[in-house]
Design a protein around this nucleic acid. Sequence first.
RNA 1: GGCCCAUUCGUCUAAUCGGUCAGGACGCAGGCCUCUCAAGCCUGAAGAACGGGUUCGAAUCCCGUAUGGGCCA
Length: 485
Amino acid sequence: MSDKPVRVRIAPSPTGDPHVGTAYVGLINYAFARQNGGQFILRIEDTDQERSTRASEQAIFDALRWVGLSWDEGPDVGGPLGPYRQSERTEIYRKHVRDLIDLGFAYPCFCTPEELNAIRLRQRDLKQNTGYDGTCRHIPKDEAIRRMDAGETCVIRLKVPEGKTVVHDRLRGDVEIENSQVDDQILLKSDGFPTYHLANVVDDHLMGITHVIRAEEWISSTPKHLMLYEAFGWEPPTFVHLPLLRNHDKSKISKRKNPVSLLYFKQIGILPEAMLNFLAMLGHSMPDEREKFTLTEFVNEFSFDRISLGGPVFDLEKLIWLNGVHIREMDDDELARRIVGLMFTPEAMKPLIPLIKERIRTLGDYPEHVSYFNAPQIDVPLIDIWKAGKGMTTAQIAKMLKETVEFLDGIREFDARWLEEGLRTFCEQKEYQVKTLFMMLRLCITGRKATPPLFDVFVVLGKAAVGQRIRAAADAIAAWKPPAA
RNA sequence: GGCCCAUUCGUCUAAUCGGUCAGGACGCAGGCCUCUCAAGCCUGAAGAACGGGUUCGAAUCCCGUAUGGGCCA
């Protein structure tokens, strides 16, 4: 290992809500950088033009700043080795791919989707490993370049050599993988955009990254990255593959089964320092086993040697407990400021006002009308939901609610008119009673029978919280027994 | 299905040179305190995936199996 100054990075994709996993991996990278007097870099991986948005990118900046992680270089703060947005670096990737072709480590592939599909089917029939069979590898280089320059549609693939590749992982030791297991990975897509693997390696090298600290899911693609370093003649960084955060059933953490949006945790009133503190306890422990600590303390004590490799389950209960500890130990004035900042700033209150204006008679009525907006969980009156079902079994109700969440997950725009129309159509198709479903949803997300218009409440609450609450209610009702008649 | 990673109470974890009644925390149960509810304090139930080895001695090292997970398809 060299004694170059430490430079690490996180590279989130700006799709959807800012993810708790980004904060987790960010925290470890941040701690390692700070501990070693190095730099922590934020790079935006927006090569998926379809799904990336500027709004999502901004939400990542905001969420990381909210938890208290700051970066030394990034799209918004600049830096000497930018640009830090991959969509602004496509020329760099194209040049490097050109070099790879010249050196014989990559080749253009003209196979059509139909041909690729045929290859896959044939391999499946023969019970071979699936993967590109290397047809276009054998096209002579000058012919291939001529066809490519003539504008024939193609992708550029990595020419995986024979042999095996050893990944030196800081936490797991040497991991050997046969190169025959590695596909001739696409490096550059036919639209001229790079894939993750290429962009990642090129950027990490050009940005002087010394340690790639990322989630375990990347370990099996590391051989591809190593081959690229080798092909370019670059020294690879140290790889550190962190355990993956898990749902309660141990699968990789996902929004279907767990709240994962940092926006959600903020909304229900998790303190940013508690959020970070909690994440720091997953897969890592302090030498004295203390559970409450600050970011600075974590930076001082963090060590790769104290990381445990079993994928930790994200336990919301414990997060809420820890948050309570932080609240109790907080200075009164500070706590007051935090509550005001969360609930009573003009910006935070504004969306709630139209919903309650015609329902309050004194200003003092305000709190009871908005109490469910920032609640971490709703005490769902199961008996009322059951009664609203008018004879439906709890299993039927749970099924209906789950289907509704799935429907909501797929909805394009989370806006009141759109939601109502969508759900009415949904009821028609499924032959559910509109009134019944709407009352149940009201009970699920607010715990009450009387509320402002349902879909206005949906919009203010946001997609993450709505999905979370309905899911929780569905689980609760499924496990509940109605009273005997 | 192929490859890879992992495996200590339900959950987060400790014990890093093999010797511990396997410790702590969340949650759960019971109790104390108390106008209620929290908080706080006390007590309790709860764990080494399984099978082989190595060793005087294994949670700890090795092998196999199982289970979970990830990636690719």
